[in-house]
Design a protein around this nucleic acid. Structure first.
Lengths: 123, 123
DNA sequence: CTCTCAAATTGATGTATGTCAATGAAAGAG
DNA sequence: CTCTTTCATTGACATACATCAATTTGAGAG
């Protein structure tokens, strides 16, 4: 598995974005049969998108320029550890990018990555 | 939850395609914040895509005009019940469409549905 | 009708995952 | 330094899921 380590300006939590290249260069589903390695990498991305809380979270982040972690707990009705858990998974899938500013963690969407994933579904 | 029942020519197993409308009319993630109901529906689709075996399976089916269930076991190295389990999940997500011909079950991809899902990720 | 074959279903098992309370770590404010 | 605040991590628990052996269902063939 190809791993592309990317620091996101966090001290405590180092976000590791998996498959930065694999996703970008992966052929659309209907063009070539996927290898096992490709399938595992891509499956992890879709797995990040397979939870309702994370989908709403991503939608909220993508609808704004950036969103603070602390602004997610109330609208999603989830505890702070749960929010942290989900942002981590979205970040590891490369769907959002985090930046620490003082005590606050700010998240923004990664539209390029989202386009790459969309392209896998539809040539 | 909106359920769109669709017979697929099977006697034994009635495939139920969920969210036929919801997906088609769902706004791209970045445009409007998703409701809980939308999120649950869409999450189920991505959940179907979140398994490596199913991704390779979908890739194989989408690369051909149609594929028989029996032609999937060997290349995917999975048992017959497991193949049946996965085809069912892909069909319920509306990603593939099945048709029984004699003793055999033939599957073809649903490119329209795949395009709809891609559009949710990238406007 | 019986026999055969392909697929669906059932049941069991191990693993993965969402959730939160409790705790720890990091960054300011005073 | 201490106090406060925000986020990350740990541990525990319940649920969901992938897998296969065994069985059942369904559709021809003879």
């Amino acid at each position: 598995m190809i791993v592309n380590t990317k620091m996101v300006g966090m001290a405590q939590h180092k976000t590791i974005t998996v498959n930065a290249d694999v996703v970008a260069c992966c052929s659309p589903l209907a063009h070539v049969e996927m290898s096992e390695a490709e399938a595992s990498d891509i499956a992890q991305i879709f797995s990040a998108l397979s939870d309702p809380v994370r989908l709403r979270m991503l939608s909220m982040i993508a609808s704004e320029s950036e969103v603070c972690s602390c602004a997610l707990e109330e609208p999603l009705s989830k505890s702070q550890p749960t929010i942290s858990h989900h942002t981590r998974i979205l970040a590891e899938a490369g769907l959002i990018i985090g930046e620490r500013r003082g005590r606050w963690m700010w998240w923004r969407a990664a539209p390029d990555r989202m386009r790459d994933i969309a392209r896998i579904l539809s040539a």
